[in-house]
């Protein structure tokens, strides 16, 4: 029963996110432009950031501002499952799109006799998937706190801070800040001998912490049509 609910929520989110003409069209245009860029630069282009922001923005906040969430929570739906479903839906949708784009790029490069080794393509897909699920967890957390698409704006604003402020707050703090906003696992840097356990734990602790905070914030939310 619980998996059926989870699946229904994920499919509903996919439909809502990918079948909107504007956003779906933008995603497709962006994927094809990345494939063209790969042909020009002769290397794989990672489309993960823009796609995650396009598809992941307002995953919960849009439901609040459009009035869907108060209606949804009148049903016996466990709120933590709702948050997890949103995260999984955004993460899986962007991962599939990114993987297809990277495979398309690899194909284009191979046809131009600039073939990228299969291991490199696999590592790029792995890194993209980890980045997608990492950034999605942060976006879901922000989206629970803010309505509509303000989560993406907050993410963009906060990611500029370390670029400007690393001279004032120190390199280490700026790096940790960046690692929080952009959790990612690079295959060779993480899993080649010796395994970089700090990277592994940093990534998974950021993801679980963001999801935890998102669930706790949703649990505290009092929703009604009157509260807007």
């Amino acid at each position: 029963m619980s998996f059926a609910v989870l699946r229904a929520l994920i499919v509903a989110t996919w439909r809502e996110r990918l079948l909107r003409p504007l956003f779906g069209g933008l995603c497709l245009v962006f994927c094809f432009s990345e494939i063209s860029a790969a042909r020009l630069t002769h290397e794989l282009q990672d489309p993960v950031l823009i796609l995650t922001l396009l598809i992941g923005a307002g995953s919960v906040g849009k439901d609040v501002s459009s009035g869907v969430l108060p209606l949804l929570f009148t049903r016996p739906l466990v709120r933590s499952r709702y948050v997890l479903a949103k995260w999984l839906a955004v993460g899986s949708a962007v991962t599939v799109l990114t993987a297809l784009t990277l495979l398309g790029e690899a194909l284009v490069l191979a046809r131009a006799d600039l073939g990228v080794p299969r291991a490199e393509v696999t590592a790029a897909i792995f890194q993209s998937a980890s980045t997608v699920f990492g950034i999605s967890s942060v976006l879901v957390f922000f989206s629970v706190l803010l309505s509509s698409f303000a989560d993406a704006l907050l993410w963009i604003g906060l990611s500029v801070v370390p670029q400007i402020g690393h001279r004032f707050v120190g390199q280490r703090i700026a790096e940790e800040w960046q690692a929080f906003l952009y959790p990612s696992l690079e295959w060779s840097a993480t899993f080649d001998h010796p395994v970089a356990w700090f990277r592994v734990f940093s990534y998974f602790s950021t993801v679980t912490l963001c999801l935890c905070l998102a669930v706790l914030a949703v649990n505290r939310k009092e929703l009604s049509y009157a509260s807007g």
Binding site: L77, R79, S80, F201, L211, C212, L216
Partner: peptide, 15 residues
């Protein structure tokens, strides 16, 4: 419907 995410909390703390 507002159950505390105990497993997630423990996992986050351990990590």
């Amino acid at each position: 419907t507002r159950g505390r995410p105990t497993v997630l909390l423990v996992l986050a703390a351990v990590l």
